[in-house]
C-alpha cells in the first residue's frame, strides 16, 4: 500500500461507511490515494494507530487523550463543530434543586461510562465545584464508542424526566435536540450548571506517518468548501461546515477527568474498572 494514506475510523453507525467511501472517492479525484479501516471501538483503533497499522485515526477526544499518553502523536485537523462545546447538568423544573451543592447524595444520570461529554467531563466539573458524593447512574449504549452514540444521553434524559434520576448530564447540542424532539418536554427541566468550553474529535497522526501524504490530506481537508456542491453532502453527513487546523488546547478538562477516575494511567493503559469495550 505504498503511497496510500490509511485512516482508522470507529463504526459507531452504518453511515460511517457512506461517509468514508464518499471521502475516499473525493480524495481520489483530488489525487490523494486514501483508504480507511473501520474498528468497532476506539481502544482497538488507538492501539492500531500506535502500532502503525494506520497512519491517522479519526479520534474521539478520549481516544486522543489515550493516544497522546501512549506515544508521540499530533492532531492535524478537526471539525469547526469540534470546537468549544459545553455540557450541562439538568434537573426537573419543580425539583427544588437550586444549586449543585443540593445534588449531594442524589442520583445523577450520565451517558456511557466512556462518554467524555455526558459522563467524564460533567462529573469532573461537579467535583471541581465540591460535589463528589452523588450516585452515578450510567446509561451504557455503545461502550467503547466513547459516547458517539446518542442513545446513552437520551436514556439519561428520559431517566430524569421519569423521576428515576434527580439530574442528568448531556452535551449542549443534545439538550437542544431533546427539547425539540420532545424527550424533555418544554418547561419540564432546568439547567443547573454548564461546563466551560472543551474540544471534541480530531485527526490524530502517529509519528512515522508519511509526512507528504499527511500534509496533502490536511491541505485537502482545509480546502473543502461548503459552497462546493460535490463536497457539501460529505460535510453534511460528517456534521461540519469547515475543517480547521487541529488544536490540543481544548482537552484539559478531559485529561483531568481521566486522571480523577483513573480511566487510563499515565502510559495510556486502560485502568478503568468495569470498562469492557
Amino acid at each position: 500500500m505504498a503511497g496510500t494514506l490509511l485512516m482508522g475510523a470507529v463504526a459507531y453507525d452504518p453511515k460511517v461507511v457512506t461517509i468514508w467511501d464518499g471521502f475516499r472517492d473525493w480524495f481520489a479525484a483530488q489525487g490523494l490515494a486514501f483508504d480507511y479501516v473501520l474498528y468497532s471501538n476506539y481502544e482497538r483503533q488507538v492501539e492500531a494507530l500506535l502500532a502503525g497499522h494506520v497512519h491517522v485515526a479519526w479520534n474521539s477526544p478520549l481516544a486522543w487523550v489515550r493516544a497522546a499518553r501512549m506515544g508521540p502523536v499530533t492532531a492535524v485537523a478537526m471539525r469547526d463543530t469540534d470546537c468549544d462545546l459545553t455540557s450541562v447538568v439538568v434537573v426537573r423544573a419543580g425539583s427544588g434543586i437550586e444549586s449543585v451543592a443540593d445534588l449531594t447524595g442524589l442520583t445523577v444520570a450520565v451517558g456511557a461510562v466512556d462518554s467524555p461529554q455526558a459522563t467524564l467531563i460533567p462529573l469532573s466539573y461537579l467535583r471541581s465545584l465540591g460535589v463528589d458524593d452523588v450516585k452515578v447512574q450510567v446509561h451504557d449504549i455503545g461502550v467503547g464508542k466513547h459516547g458517539d452514540h446518542v442513545g446513552g444521553e437520551r436514556d439519561a434524559a428520559r431517566a430524569l424526566v421519569s423521576g428515576a434520576a434527580d439530574a442528568a448530564c448531556m452535551i449542549d447540542g443534545n439538550h437542544l435536540l431533546f427539547g425539540v424532539e420532545g424527550t424533555m418536554p418544554a418547561g419540564s427541566t432546568r439547567i443547573l450548571a454548564q461546563t466551560p468550553p472543551y474540544d471534541h474529535c480530531n485527526f490524530t497522526v502517529v509519528a512515522g506517518a508519511p509526512a507528504d501524504l499527511v500534509e496533502q490530506f490536511r491541505a485537502l481537508l482545509l480546502g473543502m468548501s461548503y459552497d462546493d456542491p460535490q463536497v457539501r453532502p460529505l460535510l453534511d453527513l460528517e456534521g461540519l461546515k469547515a475543517w480547521r487546523d487541529g488544536r490540543t488546547s481544548g482537552y484539559a478538562q478531559l485529561e483531568r477527568a481521566v486522571d480523577e477516575v483513573g480511566f487510563y494511567d499515565a502510559g495510556g493503559n486502560v485502568t478503568a474498572e468495569d470498562y469492557r469495550p
Binding site: 469547526d80 463543530t81 470546537c83 468549544d84 462545546l85 459545553t86 450541562v88 452535551i171 449542549d172 447540542g173 439538550h175 437542544l176 427539547g179 432546568r190 439547567i191 454548564q194 456534521g239
Partner: peptide, 13 residues
C-alpha cells in the same frame, strides 16, 4: 434561561 446554551449549540450546527 437556556438561551445562551441553545444559541451556542445552534451556532455550531
Amino acid at each position: 434561561p437556556e438561551l445562551a446554551v441553545h444559541l451556542r449549540a445552534w451556532c455550531r450546527a
